[in-house]
Design a protein around this nucleic acid. Sequence first.
DNA 1: ACGTCCCGCCAGGAT
DNA 2: ATCCTGGCGGGACGT
Length: 373
Amino acid sequence: MSSSVNPEEAQWKNPNIYSRKEKSLGLLCSNFLKLCDREGVDSIGLDNAADQLGVERRRIYDIVNILESVGVLSRKAKNQYKWNGFSAIPKAVDLLKKEGLKDQSAVSSTSHSVANVIACNHSDLKEKGQDKTSGSHKIDNRKEKSLMILAQNFVKLFHCSDVDLISLDKAASALLGDMHDPMAMKTKTRRLYDIANVFVSMNLIEKIRSPDNGKPAFKWIAWKENPRTGSPAASKSDDSKRRTFGAEITNTTSKRCRADSSSDLVSNGQVKRLKVAKDDELKDKNQEMSTERLNGHGTMEFVFGPFGPASLPKAGVSGKENLKQTQNWEDLASTYRPQYQNKAASELFAHYVEAWESWQVEAANELHKQHLN
DNA sequence: ACGTCCCGCCAGGAT
DNA sequence: ATCCTGGCGGGACGT
């Protein structure tokens, strides 16, 4: 039962292990941002984004709602978001700050405590829904609980209170006001984890241990004092600060507890980063995502996954040489069967494998014949 | 044991 | 009627 197996190493040895780290919302957010933050991208289609990132659409909703809360995206239409870019963050945050402070003074609070900021937001939301028919009340209630509002309130906490470090349970209990139902607390905290992870991946906040109690808490790290309007998000490309998770890889589609999932290609203990190689593989999707393709101009290294078609052996190319390594390739193929995020790519891979196998049989027969002659 | 948070169900809104 | 959106909480993973 000795346990000192490094998870990364374990995954190398047994690539079928499910790793939740590969699927975190933060990582997904990073990849989503990389997908969007490219020249020519103006409009984001959720379906397309989900396809390209290999995740359920549901997860995209989480991301866009949180991103919308800080102005990076704005909803254009059903299934369509406008990319405003990182430069929109300072303005949005400033607005939230003003809003928060205004509400605060309206409630005549003298102390800028976390609870006060939240209390103000509650009253704010209630004011906005003047008409109290049961229907609109329900909608307000739903809106009030939305990830976007929650994320905005979370941002306000940092900017409108004099508290520097905010733990999630503190934020959750403040958000809930008087109500301290344990179940509600748990739910709220779960949502805050989601939001915090996205903000961390954008380097808006940072997770640190509170010096007081050693418990994790969050600190705002982007333009707290000195908003520089128009500058990109502090951090946008500062990958070194992001959670590393051992390696940077995308969210794969493997389900929890599924042993049939395949492996990652690992090289020297690191998961290989691959750009998407073939435009055509995904091209039949709607085009609104971008005018340029993923392997186009190399500003963004979109991490598509542990595997890309580029790494595949090209069936039928320089057969003799390949033949020598047939066994190696076979081993490799069976060990490192890639796990594509979308159906098209997955099918393409299956096709490659099939072609490879039939070619290999053919080549072996040929070789055998030559031997006999 | 407990903190973290992925996952997908399903209600409700939009088209 | 169908599709889109997203709140919600169970329960698995990580430490």
